[in-house]
Design a protein around this nucleic acid. Structure first.
Lengths: 340, 340
DNA sequence: CTGAAAGCGCTAACAT
DNA sequence: ATGTTAGCGCTTTCAG
């Protein structure tokens, strides 16, 4: 493989000059630069990022740790991050945990630590104190997307607020029996969003003078199938809710399906709202609280890149806005359910 | 950062021995090995893959090029590949093209060539002859997933056959007016599946003595929204088809939605079959031709890893089986549509 | 079973 | 503007 040395020999210059020319560094005459470029191209020169990394300490690579790539939300965040990273010449090392705790440990204990990357993006999971300490020791910029980790750089939405918006929308339509479908608040993967959303739900209920009912809260594990199961249960109750707030669109899709199976009309019999504005939400006319997903990936990537080119960086907490998107799965409760 | 040298000093041995011990190479006494391991751990030793790569020529990294990570199919293949790669201690470098031609060029022209990876996985796209030549020159194992590229290692299903299975199922139920929703056959990203599936559809029709009708073939771009648009069009025709074969489950979901909007019952008014067995297919009771998706990623990864540890490898063409999964979106055509 | 020494291909001072 | 000279941290002959 032709390397920098071959090019240097060919143009009869030192490897230092060639290196500078190739990297567009100042201090090289225009003429030399073009000659080097041309020669490199002609010889089929191929850089060795590994060697460059070893010599410079910069890998031009960032690690992205994701719980499940197959979930749309995470895939979209990755897409956003990859986009800006590629633009800036950085590569993306993907670590998919697949919900597997063992994988998680290996990633945090070995891979990431191996001085393989310049920065790390952690999606939606809150590293344990131990892992946080490890990441800290790495001395590399780390940004957490979609989780609230005080003291660390994060990019997320205000989950509490998003849940309030959704709940208030339902309340505003006149609903009083509102069910909530969420996910484990203390999952093994330590998301912070589920707890925050549940909290927002409760807060909005309280504003309306309502108190939460255990019977109206179910676990949908943030999956379509889980949402369906939860809704089947909720909607089969004799005193079924007039509205359901699913903490993610994917769970809401499951609710839609459950309603159909049970012969219930949405929104005539039951209203439904989600969070995300998933790519399929429009297809289903799902009312939802939209969050900028790819954008969170983009911002997170920009954030670590900025940190890399600064000598000192203070962890930024970026909170992106959400927006209520009213479509056709929410309406006033059926009159028969009125209790006024 | 503590390196191999620090460990060597501590155990009072040469770096060579430490290196061997750390990598479980033969020719190290058990005692030495455990002492090295312990010391390395105690000192917080962190390997430098970059340096190892430079010295050994092996990066223990494989590149995965994917058209769109946000599509379930690709995400699932990536998940499968990542799983086996991680097991074997390899890292995964993700290149998401996002349907962007410029990105594609940059990836094939620069990134991949930079001796950054030991092997490459290309998902569903058929590299151009030029790109193929480049990949060939790389001298690294390359496996293409989900596309048929003669002469190259591939892992895929028999798309033609899958389409025949789907079409025959519909024919077997008595359907004669069958519509097909597929995608661009000569797209910029050069997939081979769309053409093969269309071909299988035609072949199955021919077996039944039917000839294709242009009016019954539509483009759904392999997306939910595209499938919905295509179905709205097809199902609004006065002589609408009694069945629709969507070349992917995601397009089939769009069809389901279109049918609902148009007030048509599935399968009473129109039957529907897809391909994939998408994670949401079961939720919608969608009849489909299942293909092993994550498995294709796994096999592809295993294939390149096998090639890496062999001195000579012959490109293998692996074709994984598909399976008809009959659920509830297919039935005999409505009697009113009978034309016998 | 262990060690010495020569790089891998590049970058980064420090010179000139 | 360009060249010299050390490495970066590891692997890998080749010796012993």
């Amino acid at each position: 493989m032709t390397g920098i040395k071959d090019v240097a020999r060919e143009v009869e210059m030192s490897t230092a000059t060639v290196s500078r020319a190739l990297r567009d560094l100042p201090g090289v005459s225009e003429e030399t630069r073009t000659r080097v470029m041309e020669t490199a191209h002609r010889l089929g020169y191929v850089p060795s990022p590994g060697a460059a990394a070893l010599a410079s300490g910069k890998t031009r690579t960032v690690a992205v740790v994701v719980p499940w790539v197959t979930r749309w939300f995470f895939a979209a965040v990755v897409e956003g991050a990859e986009e800006v990273l590629r633009e800036r010449g950085y590569d993306l090392l993907l670590y998919n945990l697949g919900g597997d705790e063992a994988a998680r440990h290996r990633v945090f204990e070995t891979s990431l630590l191996t001085k393989r990357v310049d920065a790390v993006l952690v999606l939606s999971l809150k590293p344990s104190p131990d892992e946080l300490a490890r990441l800290e020791k790495l001395g590399r910029p780390v940004t957490v997307v979609g989780a609230d980790v005080p003291g660390w750089a994060t990019v997320r939405i205000d989950d509490d607020e998003a849940a309030r918006i959704a709940t208030r929308h339902l309340l505003g339509l006149g609903h009083r029996r509102i069910a909530y479908i969420g996910g484990a608040v203390d999952g093994v993967l330590d998301f912070t969003a589920p707890a925050a959303r549940l909290n927002g739900f409760h807060a909005a209920l309280a504003e309306a003078g309502l108190r939460p009912e255990d019977a109206l809260e179910a676990d949908g594990s943030f999956t379509v199938a889980g949402g369906m199961r939860a809704a089947e249960e909720l909607l089969s109750r004799p005193d079924r809710p007039t509205a359901i707030f699913a903490a993610s669109d994917e769970m809401a899709f499951g609710v839609l399906r459950a309603a159909r199976v049970l012969g219930l009309q949405v929104p005539e019999d039951v209203s439904l709202i989600g969070i995300d504005d998933h790519e399929m939400a429009a297809i289903f006319d799902l009312t939802t609280v939209a969050q900028p997903v790819r954008e969170q990936g983009r911002v997170a990537a920009q954030q670590v890149l900025a940190a890399l080119s600064a000598q000192h960086w203070a962890p930024q907490q970026v909170v992106l806005p959400t927006r209520l998107v009213v479509r056709r799965t929410t309406a006033a409760p059926p009159v028969s359910a009125g209790r006024t």
